[in-house]
Write a protein that binds this DNA or RNA. Sequence first.
DNA 1: CGTTCCTTTGTATACGTATACATTAATTGA
DNA 2: TCAATTAATGTATACGTATACAAAGGAACG
Lengths: 352, 352
Amino acid sequence: MYTYTKERKAYRIWCVNLNQRDIAKLAGVSSATVSRVINNDPSVSAETNKKVSEVIKKYGYVQNAVARNLRLANTKTIGYLVPDISNPFFPAVLGGIERICNSRGYDIIFENTDEDEEIERKAISSLLRFRVDGLIAVFVRCNQADLQRIKMMGIPVVLLDRKIEYTEDYDYVGIDNIGGLYSIVEYLYKLGHRKISIIYGSQDITPGYERLNGYKAAMKKFGIAINEGYLINGDFTEEGAYKGVVQLFSNDELPTAIITCNNLMTMGAYKAIIDMGIKIPDQVSLIGFDDFDFATHLVPPITVVSRATSEMGKLAAEFIIDRIDGNTSDEPRRVFLPTKLIARGSCSLGKL
Amino acid sequence: MYTYTKERKAYRIWCVNLNQRDIAKLAGVSSATVSRVINNDPSVSAETNKKVSEVIKKYGYVQNAVARNLRLANTKTIGYLVPDISNPFFPAVLGGIERICNSRGYDIIFENTDEDEEIERKAISSLLRFRVDGLIAVFVRCNQADLQRIKMMGIPVVLLDRKIEYTEDYDYVGIDNIGGLYSIVEYLYKLGHRKISIIYGSQDITPGYERLNGYKAAMKKFGIAINEGYLINGDFTEEGAYKGVVQLFSNDELPTAIITCNNLMTMGAYKAIIDMGIKIPDQVSLIGFDDFDFATHLVPPITVVSRATSEMGKLAAEFIIDRIDGNTSDEPRRVFLPTKLIARGSCSLGKL
DNA sequence: CGTTCCTTTGTATACGTATACATTAATTGA
DNA sequence: TCAATTAATGTATACGTATACAAAGGAACG
């Protein structure tokens, strides 16, 4: 594999790629001058600049970012680590991240962990080896060892959506889950609902935990006793919610309203309700956390609490780039974006 | 910015990161030995291996992939270039790509072009500078200059979904659009429909072009004259399809069936039909290209032609990695996955 | 005309890695 | 017993870049 050539020594040839030395030779200048031209160094004379630029263009020279990154000790990349690409929330956030990164000259290295701790560790290792300049992460369960290592390497982290231990030490972009659930319960309460069920998600992650707790707190605030039978674990999945709703309706005491804690579960609950032949909103009201594309097209359109996903991505990207540039005080920046209740047609007056 | 220290010279310090030389010193061996341990070179003795491994672990050494990539002239990355991350098709494909890449040790650099040629050119440049080992691309309009440059650099390309000029020179993963439309028209024909309208997408890209042409070819095959008034440009968007359907129904001669050419347009058409108070499938039949989550739970459930999105990603990733490894003949591999008609409830017998 | 300063370009080098080649110690074989 | 072979490790170097420092030439100024 190690082959010497007369002019250039190569392990595996980068095909026909020219480097700055080649361009220098072709243009009759030194490689330093070529580098200066490429980096718009003002000390280069107009004449030289033109000469070199023409050679670069003529021969289609493409800068080698690998070497550049090694020399500069940065990579102009940020890592985006998500637990589940099939959840539309994450591509939506990616859209926002991408927009900011693109305008600031950063590229994105994408990692999906499939909610698996082992894969997550590998993904983090990979990102560290790559020397990403920053990391936007939705951790499954990032252990302290990994976190410590990231910190030691001086790589800034912005936590997204899910909180983890010591979240307060890091920049964070999330939403006001408690407030979101409060607005849902308030909305249902004012419509007259008292028998309010919630299909909640995994309690291991903060969105799951906070939303259920937000529900409980709001119920308490409005003086409604919590019926344990109305609390159903839907595991943040469509199937989980489907089964949960079927189970819910096998009980004697039926709820008049159902809250679902993410868009996948809203779909699952909707399907279950329709499949059981129950009418929304006449027989039961449905309200979901997270808006989704088809919510407006279902019959009836589904009332939801929405959050600004793309905005979350933009903020996270801005936070991380500010941190990379050192444009921030040491104090972690923590943002909790407000949610917004969008009333459509899936909630009706509850019987008092 | 250029600061010399006694032991190490650094431009900008990689924080506290140790390198192989540091580990070598700590373990009392040479840096070559450290490198050998890291790369599992069998020539290292068990004793040395253990000694070095312990130091690596103790000090949390993280390999620098930037330097490694420079030395090895590869990066173990592939670029994924898409025109519109907000279209659920692309994250769905990404899921498949990610799975294969993950198992084969490749990371993904993601680029979104927003259907903009200028952004696309920049994204391609960025990927080339990064020396991605391969590229999976859905080009907006990749010009020959860029394509030529990619080829010159020896970077293999797998085209996805959209074809471009000289597609036949590249590996390609797509679907059988012509066959998909044929099966739709055949299905409607056998139900007795003759007045068949199509809401088609952008003719600048092959999925738009081929689907419309597939419709025309199938219509001809079944001996149905094409009514120009039934051909509506819906621009592959929900709004476009909505307006298109409204326009369609402002004509005198109404169709008995409508074909939509992607899932967004299916939703738009559905909504328009519902909003106009027209009954599906009694007054008009609706059949869409591309399945989508809620197709089964609309009223009525929508009949569609589906394609295996995740499978497309897996195939593309396998193709590109095979190409990188040189495990393929020079002959381009071109796959057209079949589509599958899923009959639900949105098409009824047409009046003959 | 000599000194100083500025502009422009060149020379040399380090970033961290992997490995060819050199070297040493250990083992084998006749 | 000593040369030949093998095993294990060390030394030196190139990958392509950016830039500190050196150098050279010219302009400005007294």
